[in-house]
Design a protein around this nucleic acid. Structure first.
Lengths: 202, 202
DNA sequence: ACAAAGTATGTACCATTGTACGCAGATTCA
DNA sequence: TGAATCTGCGTACAATGGTACATACTTTGT
């Protein structure tokens, strides 16, 4: 007498997917056992069986989100040879064809906020950011990668706040270009710790 | 016989302050009538009396937050004469002496997320951003102001995610400087819609 | 002083939540 | 086949939530 086999092996993953759907559309605060069960089309007991408590369910959902996700710009970035390619990959990931949908941005934001009170989720987020920066570092310096990462989050936040007001690709592109070029034109000067000059000649 | 006067005129504002405290420390999802009442040291009925429903209370709290708040960099920005002054004001507002505390950043993020489902709060946020950009526009172009605004949110998000890992001021400064200088060195070229060049000479 | 109107609060309801738990199939090994 | 074990699920319960409302207290106009 050993172990039974799950009658519906998809059930667990379906619950996790449903959890992410609920979180994206209604927010983490609305992610209850019952709502998730309803979204997944499974009975309540089914969700409590697979996930002992709600925290575990939500964290697991965020973990699957991480596992199924690579930074949007990963592939384009890998194939970028010139700085201009890098900039275009970043623009595209911000407001172009490889950019996340609004629902995905909301999902990130929900995860971010949940992570403020959940160490496990915070760890997931730090891991995601680490991956993101690692990919950027293939083409950029550490300083530039960090700035680019921060800026992209900022743009996404703007999109979240103005769902109907699309970002101006020209503005976005110029900003990334300024950061990417910074590495070439400035880093050596910043090493000297210069802070004083107001209008650096070029 | 007309109207009675409130026995404790501070009560309403104290409730609102308590609401913000609860939101900052526990999150909006934890902001219940009872918890806010406890935080404010007033009975439950007192909170329901001043605010007919919870949504109203929370929105009012966010409104008071907006009213009592000017962008952190407003004053330093107004007194900035050179680009270097502007950059320093931005760095200071990001990770220096005029930067918001972690709790305030969390508060912004909570408001941001709540705004995703509350049109009234979304409007508050758009108003805040408008003010922010308007102040930046005293010294910067529209495009630069938008990029700077986005980048600052990005840095703050980083701080929220790494509470114990302070931002590197040098990196932050260089990023802002790159954006601020962009306006001078690039805008005319971008007007020609150039996207092609990979390593722009300088 | 008295009554009306506004201020302030305690209590009570009903809905929703996380979780515990018992029961029924299914599967497996002897 | 039969007992043991796992899978899967429905129900029940205590806690917490928003909100309604009856009641008491203050202030004020006459």
């Amino acid at each position: 007498m050993r172990k039974g086999k799950p009658n519906d092996p998809e059930r667990r993953t379906r619950i996790l997917r449903a959890a992410l759907e609920v979180i994206a559309t209604e927010g983490v605060h609305a992610a209850s056992y019952r709502r998730i069960a309803a979204q997944a089309g499974v009975p309540l007991g089914s969700t409590t069986y697979y996930f002992a408590d709600l925290e575990t369910l939500i964290v697991s959902a965020f973990e699957t989100l991480r596992d199924g996700l690579e930074p949007r710009y990963a592939a384009p970035m890998r194939s970028s040879r010139t700085d201009a390619d890098v900039v275009e990959a970043l623009v595209s990931a911000t407001c172009g064809s490889t950019a996340p949908a609004l629902a995905d941005i909301r999902l990130y934001e929900e995860m971010h906020l949940y992570g403020a009170r959940s160490p496990r989720v915070a760890e997931i987020l730090r891991g995601l950011q680490k991956d993101s920066i690692m990919i950027l570092r293939r083409s950029l310096s550490e300083a530039t990668a960090r700035a680019v990462d921060a800026l992209m989050w900022g743009w996404w936040g703007y999109r979240s706040l103005h769902p109907d007001d699309p970002l101006d690709a020209v503005i976005v592109r110029n900003a990334y270009r300024a950061l990417v070029d910074m590495a070439v034109t400035r880093m050596e000067r910043s090493d000297r710790g210069g802070v004083s000059d107001s209008s650096p000649g070029l």
